[in-house]
Design a protein around this nucleic acid. Sequence first.
DNA 1: CACTTAAAGCGGTGGTCTTTGCCTTAAGGG
DNA 2: CCCTTAAGGCAAAGACCACCGCTTTAAGTG
Lengths: 180, 180
Amino acid sequence: MRTAVHQAVVDLVQDVGADKVTIPAVARRAGVNPSSVYRRWGTAAALLADVATRRQGEETPELLGDLRRDLERVAVWTLSDLSRPGGVAFFRAEVAPDVDDRRAGLRACLRRVSARFQAPLDAAARRGEVVPSLERVLDRVVAPLYFRVVFSVPGTDERFARGLVAELFGASGVEGSGLG
Amino acid sequence: MRTAVHQAVVDLVQDVGADKVTIPAVARRAGVNPSSVYRRWGTAAALLADVATRRQGEETPELLGDLRRDLERVAVWTLSDLSRPGGVAFFRAEVAPDVDDRRAGLRACLRRVSARFQAPLDAAARRGEVVPSLERVLDRVVAPLYFRVVFSVPGTDERFARGLVAELFGASGVEGSGLG
DNA sequence: CACTTAAAGCGGTGGTCTTTGCCTTAAGGG
DNA sequence: CCCTTAAGGCAAAGACCACCGCTTTAAGTG
């Protein structure tokens, strides 16, 4: 049943939007009783958070040992994670809903994305390399990705994500990546 | 009455959050009848969008003629606009709500912020200067500001906004701005 | 087989939002 | 002065959500 409910949440989020994801609606779609969903999760926000948490733990790119390549991989993975159906909708779900849970949801979301990028940075630092700070990576790579996906800026593809990382390592790669 | 309703919306957004801004609540706070609000605006999302649109037309920084200074002014203004009470809440309101109005709200939001930065770029281009593309400004200045405000990253102040613009013009200014 | 217990279904209740029809009010024009 | 009309207030009706107590099912155990 948990799988049925989770699938119903994913379907509803990308069909009618995260704000319309109400427990009765999810229960109808999943073919279960609303009260059962209320018992297990309590609120729609908790249900969305559960699905979002479950989602991101599924897979994560492994590190190869080259900082730039690893950052590119993580950036591309982050972009595809945001771009897949319902991806940014879950981000919106964590950003938007109830005031009480908002800070917690935002912190969790930021922690997840930070951890993903911190891993290759730490690995490179252990190898003795000079690495940019996490804040810099967030500003120069993650923020543009989120911004562009949220606002549906065209041309936000894998090549663009790699270009953002390339810019982090110097001016090379700017010309051919449409970033000028 | 329109002013009363708009003020009630602004108050409610910064008091209880944009998601709790419901038409009956606004009507109660404004001292008007809910059905009147339903007649004029129809939905809470439309009401929020109306208030957001009305808000941004109030003021905008004028240009001085120096590209870097102008971009800094616009960046600082954008940051303070996002940071003021309810600022990012209105952004969220446009990002999050109903699927039908979402694209329109996002396009309007992006158009507004783009126009604000496009103005000094155009002015500088008319003066014959070499100017960065709007996309580059969005990626390097606007996106980090939005990202940091949404996620409440500490240290996102006026100095940081100026540092983002400084980075656009070269490596100078990086050292002292906490961006490294 | 009987018992225990956790999980899910069922119905009802209260509360809020949303819609609708009708009435009142006030401003503008003949 | 009277008429027209648009805007707002009023109240009732419908719909939906959230919550609660109770029952039923099913799995696990001695």
